[in-house]
């Protein structure tokens, strides 16, 4: 079985990495390419870029950013936010992203999952699910749908999602641990790997999540400085979870 993965998530708006201070205020925290490189150097196994200000008019900005990231990064990365059609997914993947993450649009039109998987393979499709009390929410967690989390996760993987990125809305941002029960329930129901998201506050929290699923998304816990990722990895390994060994390139 592959090693557990630690995946920093960078929120992007208008080509910059941002951090939400409150719902309306976004603070610019840096250039996506520079930060991606720093996280990669810090031992990230993969990165997720989430375009939180994606609109059809701004699609070109995202594609340009993906290409710039692909030119420097030698680890895999996923791009989410604003992928509404197969053509959107094609632009992102052909600009150098390894995977696209589908969320609201996949709920509205599940055949998008089939279409992207048929063209690029299931390993290129992540379906992100935002969950609250067992219900799937869309549009950044603001709108409740009629769908239940576990059956939707099963349908998404049957249609061609190669991985589920599962966020517990209640736990997200609180830094008091992941929703292990929800993550376990989804992982038991699907045959693909599952990424836990929402709630990482300590190495202990991340290690607990990695014992029940395949990867953990980390955001605020490592956002104060990418150097913290290196320390986090060491602490997680001390707790008995095997991660990818670090090695710098010879010469």
């Amino acid at each position: 079985m592959p090693l557990a993965r630690l995946i920093p998530c960078l929120d992007v708006a208008n080509g910059r990495v941002v951090k939400g201070v409150s719902f309306s205020t976004l603070r610019d925290v840096g250039d996506p390419v520079e930060l991606a490189q720093l996280y990669s150097d810090g031992g990230a196994d993969e990165l997720v870029f989430l375009d939180i200000a994606a609109t059809p008019e701004r699609a070109a900005t995202t594609v340009g950013l993906v290409a710039r990231v692909a030119d420097v990064l030698t680890i895999p990365f996923t791009v989410g936010g604003g992928v509404r059609t197969l053509a959107d997914a094609s632009r992102v993947i052909e600009s150098g992203a390894d995977r696209v993450s589908l969320n609201s649009r996949a709920v509205a039109d599940p055949s998008l999952i089939d279409a992207v998987a048929r063209r690029y393979g299931t390993q290129a499709v992540v379906v992100a699910i935002d969950a609250l009390d067992g219900v799937v929410y869309t549009h950044g967690g603001r709108e409740a749908t009629g769908a239940s989390v576990v059956p939707w996760a099963v349908e998404a993987t049957e249609r061609g999602a190669g991985e589920i990125l599962l966020t517990s809305i209640r736990h997200d941002g609180h830094r008091r641990g992941y929703d292990l029960e929800l993550i376990g329930a989804v992982r038991d129901a699907v045959s693909t790997p599952v990424i836990a998201s929402g709630g990482a506050g300590s190495a202990h929290d991340v290690a607990e999540a990695l014992r029940v699923c395949d990867a953990a998304l980390v955001a605020s816990i490592v956002h104060d400085s990418p150097g913290e990722l290196e320390r986090l990895r060491e602490e997680i390994e001390k707790l008995g979870v095997a991660l990818r060994p670090r090695r710098r390139r010879d010469g």
Binding site: M1, L3, D45, Q123, S191, A215
Partner: peptide, 10 residues
Amino acid sequence: GRVPRLGWAF
């Protein structure tokens, strides 16, 4: 195992 097989492996 899980399919797709995703991630870093020795």
